[in-house]
Every structure is written in C-alpha cells, then in structure tokens.
Design a protein around this nucleic acid. Sequence first.
DNA 1: GACGATTAAATCGCATGCGATTGAATTTGG
DNA 2: CCAAATTCAATCGCATGCGATTTAATCGTC
Lengths: 152, 152
Amino acid sequence: MDKKAFAEQIKLEVLLCFSAYSLSHAFSRFYRPMLDRLGLTYPQFVVMMVLWENGKITMKALTDLVMLESNTLTPLLKKLEAAGLVHRTRNRDDERVLDIEITEAGLALKADGQLAAVDLALASGEDLDGVIEMQQRMAKMRDSVREKLETA
Amino acid sequence: MDKKAFAEQIKLEVLLCFSAYSLSHAFSRFYRPMLDRLGLTYPQFVVMMVLWENGKITMKALTDLVMLESNTLTPLLKKLEAAGLVHRTRNRDDERVLDIEITEAGLALKADGQLAAVDLALASGEDLDGVIEMQQRMAKMRDSVREKLETA
DNA sequence: GACGATTAAATCGCATGCGATTGAATTTGG
DNA sequence: CCAAATTCAATCGCATGCGATTTAATCGTC
C-alpha cells in the first residue's frame, strides 16, 4: 500500500499523538480533585514538585526541568508568589537571572503534595512494572521528539 | 518502605503523568510547522480528522470522539466556520442538537491533512510496532483513568 | 396537557501554552 | 575598551481546556 492509500485509512483513534494528548488530559482531570485540596493547578503542582526537591532554582533551570518557557512560567510563578508559596528575586551576580525559592508555606505542602503524587501515580490501571515501563518509554519518546525538533 | 518514605523520594521526572504531559506538549510543538502549513492548530486538526472521516457529526458525538466538551469546542468550531472549513446548523428534529458538516474547502484539505497525520505518526523515534503498541497502551491507560473518574 | 427533570449547547471566567517581541544585563570580538 | 551579539525574563496576543452557570428544547410522569 502506498503512502496515500495508507493515509486515507488513518483515523484519529489510532494516532499516537492523540493517545498522548487525550491521556494527558485524562490525567489532568483525574488529578483535579486532589490538587484542588492542595490549592494547586496541575502545572503549578509540577513546579512545586521541582521546588519540594530543590528548594531553590533559577527560572532558566526550571524551564529546562518542566519543559515550559518563561512566557508560561512567569504568570504561574507570580500566582504562586501571590499565594505565598514561593519568593522571586533577581540574582545578585547576574541581574538577568531570576531566583525562585520555596517559602515556609510552600514547604508545608510538601508532605501532602508528595503523598498526592504517589496516589496519582498508582491510579493508572497499570501494575507497578507497567507504570514504570510506560513512564520510561513515554519519556524516551518525548526526548526523541524534542531531539528531532532541535535538529530540524 | 512505607508510603511516606516512598513519597519523600518521588521526583517529577519519574511521574507517569508528567511523561504524558510533556510528551503531549512535545508532539504539539513538533507538529506545529506542518499544521501551520494547513492553517490549523492541533485541536483544530483533531476535529478535522473526525470530519474528514465522517463528513457530518453532531456536537454531542464530537465531544465523545475527541474527549473535549462543548465549552472548548464551540469557540474552536466557530473559528473553523469563520475559516470556511465547516458549517454549523441546528438539527431540524431536535433544536438542542448542533450539526457540524464539513465544507468543500474543508474536504479540500483532507489529502494533505491525512498525509500530515502519517508523517507525524512516524516521527516518534519508535519503530512501527513500537508506535502501535505504545498507542494502544496509552489509549488503554487513558480509558482506565477515565473509567475511574466516572466511578469515583 | 402540564410541569418539573433532563439534555444539549453556549457563555463566562480563569489558568495555561506558546509565537513574537521587547528590554535589560552580560558576553564577546575586534 | 566598546559596540554588536547573546542571554534571560517579561509582555502581549491568541487559542485552548474546563468548572460553573445559563438558556433553550425535549422528555417523562402524572
């Protein structure tokens, strides 16, 4: 079958990208009740995961870890700051750099937040080995796609 | 190790949900140049995939297929209508129902759109068997998560 | 047939994502 | 040393997602 004939038969439900897209939304909807109790949205939770682990980080390093850019993270971090969970300060040595540091109130959420992360991780319907394998393969696929985008 | 001790060690990079989240964004960013040439965003492309296959569909059926709600799809469909790719009409038999039908201009994008879908499907770094397996497992996981959300 | 319950879509508000641009600080090359 | 290039974060505009609510139409039960 040539590419055109194959293309005519392709359907949304078999597309890899749509499975990833709809899976990501499904997780986000599933997590909402638990994250609501923490007062966090899912992207805010992702940022807090980084801060619970690292305590302090620059904007640049954060963009690399969460794979989002400053145009997304700046408003999000301002909301976290308004909620009292982080401090945002300019770096003394290089004024271009923004330092982000978790506050006492942010640290106070750590235990509950990390417990939530575990509960959520176990809610996928896969067994533990399956969860680990799928997580690794999706991460590998993501890195492969990102690699291709860079070298394009 | 108890749950609390396990939770303290958990990191963003090993979370299943974050792999799905970052994979979905990676696909979206990777696809953008090709979708730009079609004049579509990724969610618009998803809707057009359904319409290229079905020609005509109700809003209700569309929300089930793409797993998004009318509050997301109404503005998106109005943009597609403004671009001349779809018609939106009220159903004669039941005025609550919105019928969505692809136009000639929308059909004219079908061949290019479906070819794009094939190119994109092959860009993940997995071989064909791996693509199919991952697609199926992600879809199964998504359905499992959605099932749990419903019964919660 | 009436009327409360249900269903479908739209509307509103808020929080992302991200391309494009801007502005400020630093680095680099001559 | 200094101007151009680079880097970093912020800003702006637009397009999602989605919870909550509203509006309109239909259904179900008496």
